[in-house]
């Protein structure tokens, strides 16, 4: 099985400061939500690809993206079915729903769905890179530095810690019930659901027992001993890190000002908008794309400087 979890592959991306990665991902997230133009969103997605290559996580990334593909398909289908807007009607349903009207499928609705799917893909790609290259404990440290409450952060980290255990558990319990003649793929939906329950119930009860034992062990090692906890691992901020951080804020500022200038807007309804990009917008878009791609040279630069 391909692991969806963090593995230290020692690449420049893995070694990048957690705060820089968090700044980068917030940049991608904000831009993905600001812009509607599918070209912009596509550019955003493409800008994440070199990082996948540099972090050497192709396989893991690809299997996450495969899941996101199905999600996108769902978004497109639902949007096409539900959205009643758009002037190019491809198909009109032969029935009428009170209040809503006659459902129809329009070209605009399909394309709007595709545009949103691209947005989603860009965001998922960025988060996939983050989870595959950021040590969960470092994420925890970063979040605590950002003044999130320690206990909530710890719960998140514990959840990550027990993912492999849970996967093993599911495997064993499935084997147990199949050995007792359970056929998971047989029968209608109700029977399938009942079959899954014979796995879910032992899994949940075992996990509950486990949770109690983990709590006991933590208590025994002085967990919850007042607020003044120390942290052995630290996230050092070097000058380069601060520079990289500043750089991403620049990127964000650029994106926001473009959005304020009305760039990157796009409307699907009632008919598809044009895609003409003026000279100024073209220039700013190129700069933005360039800034997005700067993550990689910056990461290499950081390693060079760290080695010196």
């Amino acid at each position: 099985m391909i692991s969806f979890r963090y593995q230290d592959k020692g690449t420049v991306i893995h070694k990048l400061n957690p705060f820089c990665k968090l700044a980068w991902i917030s940049g991608v997230l904000v831009l993905a939500l600001l812009f509607d133009n599918p070209l912009y969103l596509l550019a955003l997605f493409v800008s994440t690809l070199p990082l996948v290559w540099a972090a050497r996580v192709w396989k893991e990334w690809a299997s996450i993206m495969k899941l996101s593909f199905y999600l996108c398909l769902l978004v497109i289908v639902i949007n096409a079915l539900v959205s009643n807007q758009g002037s190019h009607v491809l198909y009109q349903f032969p029935f009428h729903i009170p209040i809503w009207g006659t459902p129809k499928i329009t070209l605009e609705a399909i394309l709007c769905g595709i545009g949103n799917a691209v947005r989603l893909t860009a965001i998922i790609s960025a988060f996939a890179i983050l989870t595959l290259t950021l040590h969960p404990d470092n994420l925890m440290l970063a979040m605590i530095k950002m003044r999130l409450p320690y206990k909530s952060v710890l719960v998140t980290s514990l959840a990550t810690r027990f993912v492999p255990t849970l996967i093993d558990d599911i495997g064993t319990i499935t084997d147990v019930q199949r050995s007792r003649g359970l056929e998971l793929d047989k029968g209608g939906l109700p029977q399938k659901i009942r079959g899954r329950m014979t796995i879910m119930i032992p899994l949940l009860s075992n996990s509950l027992d486990r949770a109690f034992q983990v709590a006991e062990a933590m208590e025994s090692r002085a967990f919850g001993n007042g607020a003044k906890r120390t942290f052995y691992n630290r996230i050092g901020m070097s000058t380069v890190d601060i520079a990289i951080l500043a750089f991403f804020f620049l990127l964000l500022a650029m994106g926001i000002s473009m959005s304020l200038l009305g760039q990157g807007e796009y409307s699907y309804y009632p008919t598809l908008g044009g895609m003409n990009i003026g000279p100024l917008e073209g220039l700013m878009l190129s700069i933005l794309a360039l800034l997005l791609l700067m993550m990689l040279p910056l990461a290499y630069l950081k390693r060079r400087i760290d080695l010196d």
């Binding site: 969960p136 404990d137 980290s157 810690r161 090692r221 001993n225 120390t230 942290f231 052995y232």
Partner: peptide, 17 residues
């Protein structure tokens, strides 16, 4: 409770500040 051995050993000591 931690992701690697070193952090595991540190856990109790960190709790005790």
């Amino acid at each position: 409770v931690a992701m690697d051995v070193e952090r595991e050993i540190a856990f109790g000591l960190e709790n005790l500040a």
